[in-house]
Design a protein around this nucleic acid. Sequence first.
DNA 1: ATGGGCCTTGCCATCGTTGGAAGGTCAAGG
DNA 2: CCTTGACCTTCCAACGATGGCAAGGCCCAT
Lengths: 157, 157
Amino acid sequence: MNIGDAAKASGVSAKMIRYYEQIGLIPPAGRTHAGYRDYTEKDVHVLRFVRRARDLGFSVAEIDGLLQLWRNRRRRSADVKRIALDHIEDLQRRIADMQEMAATLQQLATCCSGDDRPDCPILADLEQPSAAAAKEPKRRRGAVDDRGVGKRKAQRG
Amino acid sequence: MNIGDAAKASGVSAKMIRYYEQIGLIPPAGRTHAGYRDYTEKDVHVLRFVRRARDLGFSVAEIDGLLQLWRNRRRRSADVKRIALDHIEDLQRRIADMQEMAATLQQLATCCSGDDRPDCPILADLEQPSAAAAKEPKRRRGAVDDRGVGKRKAQRG
DNA sequence: ATGGGCCTTGCCATCGTTGGAAGGTCAAGG
DNA sequence: CCTTGACCTTCCAACGATGGCAAGGCCCAT
């Protein structure tokens, strides 16, 4: 089975299959005499696992963990659950952040006449965050200066 | 005012200030005889604008548009509102996607005993998405193959 | 044998941000 | 005057996940 077929069968693009192999997320595929990657149904099965996990928003690093647990018949389901719950938390944090942004903007937009006149509460707020709209900014994007503050969880985005 | 002071005063890191200047988001700062960037209160004002917009999740491209409108005294507030509303929509789409992921995972996690035994509905679903949990996968990450399907809106994040 | 479609590798771009190296400047203290 | 340390400069690389392109090889059908 060629990489193109494996791509269609798994829903993972050929490009990404090669990439996942390169970074070691999946083991190197077999090769034909001509050097073409050769996939079995089993390989496709793995790829579908990866695809599904990506669809659920897991990072490649998390999927790596999940794959190892998947392959390990003596795994503890608690370990799997841990990864899932952490990911849910992560999602919820990001959802909350975005909801706050959306709410703030919605409020500002509601106050904006949106016509030919220049007066605009949106720009006014960007200029001088109003106490009402500002709240704690939540600074998604790290420190204020060059001198780093230590590692943060890798932010996918 | 040195770049470090401007960073502290605006909440934008020195690194990012240089970057924003480099990509043309903000005009080049003045320079001292030694080549140090020199900032005025006005410059810091602009930086704070940028910072606030980033906090609200606007992309650099969007901020560029907002800055131009900000500077243009004859702008139409409708143009500002348009950018804001588009961004809100974008946020809401992403929020919905993430909520769906979180809900699916939550459901799976609830079914997972999370103990020392290996049986795990989470892994089972990743292996073979159940009809209940799968729904329309929403494929946030593009096509199935190399041969592209055209441009999508740049995805930050 | 020729053409089209697939495969290979490799490099570049994205987006926003951080990190680091190598070197110049400035102010304070010996 | 010299050193030290904190700051500044530029340039380069990395992150994560993906798409795109190009040059060349392979395979199959006409």
